[in-house]
Design a protein around this nucleic acid. Structure first.
Lengths: 158, 158
DNA sequence: CTAATTGTTCGGAACATTCCGAACAAGATA
DNA sequence: TATCTTGTTCGGAATGTTCCGAACAATTAG
């Protein structure tokens, strides 16, 4: 059986490849593996062995990306952090933004190449494909939501 | 109307965010915008103003990623490069590998957290969601293929 | 076989990014 | 109000990556 520390390090690597910093990725690992209900900045610093300044920027990075949210329990003096309800939904929607960006890139290309037929065909294919993905991917997310709801609440409606 | 150079630079930026190097991204921009039938290494070096060593690694990077292919016209002494037929299909399949990787990461986490119910629920959700995407995304690619074929060859079968 | 050209590999320089420690701002308690 | 704690910002060090120029291997023409 693997260790939790190993998982945290792996998470650091994996999320780093998504564009986050290493420490931000490790924070994600901590919040995924821990009870997550009581994570605060000093505790994460202690656990990951990073300066609180680095932790500050990492947490802001994650919050701005919508992956975590901070909350202040009543009468508490420090912020606490937890994963957003649909962390991965948001991650996928970020991917969607990438689809839209590449659609725009293809359009920029079409605007630049003029009427060269071969280049136009290539760029039109690129544009259409990314537009298709940007259009269809949200539906996939919706389907996931409904299927998961059905699986967890068979026959039930909220 | 935008300039081709601008588009090449934009492509450099955009593809860099996909994990490629800047020069590799600019090469993608060139191959997308140009006629693409006669791109060779010296020409790309000249056009992008990079050393041929950098061009060599960039082209190998792109070839290994399956985005471009090299071919040697008869009686030619230098290799030529062009985009693969389904460049973006391959790009999306690379994304799919990411889905599989995160599924595995979630499983590693489940293996690590033991029987903590909250963490387990979170990681199981993560695992199931990425597995769902890894399963459904190829179908989306297939649908794109069929729809595009239908649109370009109405009523025809190859 | 010799010479020339194409493509790869390697060492070092330039560059960007990340992180830490220290100074600073903001809020709460006594 | 004074003090303590929390969180942010800034300058500098360290790290990792990318790129260039030079040396090397491989192929082709003469």
């Amino acid at each position: 059986m693997a260790d939790v520390e190993e998982f945290v390090e792996s998470a650091g690597l994996y999320f780093e490849r998504l564009g986050l910093s290493r420490t931000a990725g490790r924070v994600m690992g901590c919040l995924l593996a821990d009870t997550g209900e009581a994570a605060d900045a000093p505790g994460l610093c202690e656990r990951l062995g990073v300066a609180k300044s680095s932790m500050s920027v990492a947490l802001n990075q994650l919050e701005q990306g919508g992956l975590i949210e901070r909350y202040r329990p009543p009468r508490a003096r420090r912020d606490h952090y937890r994963l957003t309800d649909d962390v991965f939904g948001r991650a996928f929607r970020a991917k969607m933004a990438e689809f839209a960006a590449f659609t725009a890139l293809a359009e920029q290309g079409l605007d630049a190449v003029g009427d060269h037929p071969v280049a136009r065909a290539r760029l039109e294919n690129m544009r259409d494909m990314y537009a298709f993905m940007a259009r269809e991917f949200p539906k996939l997310l919706d389907r996931w939501d409904t299927e998961r709801t059905d699986a967890h609440r068979p026959g039930g409606s909220d």
